[in-house]
């Protein structure tokens, strides 16, 4: 089994609608029932991010996200799947449920 990160992408800081939330709940329950769930969560808006550089002496804090980009990650799933074909299906289901695009990326095995 391998683990994959499914990042949910959005170009604006809108919360999931009630309808989307309901669909996400159904999707999550299915993941759990099928033993494919590892973790999931939504993120606060990019404006709430702080970049921290602790590599050299006193940590340096920078307000805001690391990269200004048109799209940001607003939530994610971590799923478990035997191979990419299964993961792609789950990603398609996740994308449909939250009504946004997702980026699927494997963890280092």
């Amino acid at each position: 089994m391998a683990q994959y990160l499914m990042s949910v992408l959005d170009d604006q800081a809108r919360l999931a609608s009630a309808e989307e939330m309901a669909a996400i709940d159904v999707f999550n329950e299915q993941l759990q029932a099928d033993g494919q769930w590892v973790f999931a969560g939504g993120l606060a808006s990019p404006g709430s991010a702080t970049v921290v550089d602790g590599r050299d002496g006193d940590p340096v804090f920078t307000d805001g996200p690391y990269v200004e980009s048109k799209e940001h990650v607003i939530g994610f799933w971590i799923i478990e799947a035997p191979h990419l074909d299964v993961a792609l299906r789950l990603a398609a289901g996740g994308s449909k449920s939250c009504n946004r695009r997702v980026e699927l990326r494997p963890f280092l095995g």
């Binding site: 391998a2 035997p82 191979h83 990419l84 074909d85 993961a87 299906r89 990326r105 494997p106 280092l108 095995g109």
Partner: peptide, 14 residues
């Protein structure tokens, strides 16, 4: 290798 693209024929529906 990293994404585990399977060495196999696809699911019947796919």
């Amino acid at each position: 290798k990293a994404a585990r693209i399977p060495f196999g024929v696809p699911f019947r529906e796919d």
